[in-house]
């Protein structure tokens, strides 16, 4: 029997349903929704933290969610090696609870950025991306606080440990300011922790599973099959 795939949701989450549709479509199973006050998550296969907002994103995006019982469970399971995936607000939550390096701050443009972007996959040695054949994928973004910031010392650690997973790029994989939608350091769109079982990314693979917004997300979710 497969292990459970869980989606934690908060007041303000709005990509939880999209994630459930993507998981059902690609992994052929029904994910379990967990409310933020869930104080015991038993033996999860993968835990997703969805995009949207959490607690109004008051104070800083994601910070209030980090104090919820469900995120305490996420931290406990992350330390045991359970795969955790945070998308958009989920990525913000994972940096605020220190499972991931850096911080996500207001886009340099000051604008909410909502469009499809190309992403170069920087690391295919990791189980989150090793089954993706393409070198560049296209997922939508939709955020106003998606500028990834990390200081030079920690950036070097991310580089040295192969923790950078996705970078904003051109269709052919060129990296430059021109393709950086939010001012992120080194065009970084997604990273993993040092143990490589916690992934955070601003773009939305769950919104790229149909002909309208592209199908590159399907391979991302299909690739998770071996984890459950």
């Amino acid at each position: 029997m497969n292990k459970e795939v869980s989606i934690i949701h908060f007041p303000g989450s709005n990509c939880d349903r999209d994630l459930a549709v993507a998981i059902k479509y690609c992994l052929k199973l029904k994910p379990k929704f967990l409310w933020h006050n869930e104080s015991h998550i038993k033996d999860p296969g993968i835990i997703f933290i969805p995009g949207g907002f959490s607690f109004g994103d008051y104070l800083r995006a994601g910070i209030l969610a980090t104090k919820s019982p469900a995120i305490k469970e996420v931290i406990r399971h992350a330390k045991k090696g359970v795969p955790i995936i945070g998308i958009c607000n989920g990525f913000q939550i994972l940096t605020e609870c220190k499972l991931l390096e850096g911080a996500l701050i207001k886009n340099s443009s000051q604008l909410f950025s909502c469009k499809k972007v190309f992403l170069r996959i920087e690391n295919k040695k990791n189980y989150f991306t090793k089954n993706i054949k393409k070198g560049v994928v296209q997922y939508p973004i939709a955020h106003s606080q998606g500028k990834f910031y990390v200081d030079d010392y920690n950036l070097k650690k991310l580089q040295d440990n192969d923790q950078i997973m996705f970078k904003y790029s051109s269709k052919t994989g060129d990296i430059s300011d021109k393709y950086n939608p939010n001012g992120s350091v080194q065009n970084i769109a997604g990273i993993v922790n040092k143990k490589k079982n916690v992934l955070g990314l601003m773009p939305h693979p769950e919104r790229a599973i149909d002909s309208f917004s592209g199908r590159d997300g399907i391979v991302f979710f299909n690739g998770l099959n071996e984890l459950i």
Partner: peptide, 8 residues
């Protein structure tokens, strides 16, 4: 722990 993020 809450009011500030020491990263930024």
């Amino acid at each position: 722990e809450l009011l500030s993020n020491p990263v930024i």
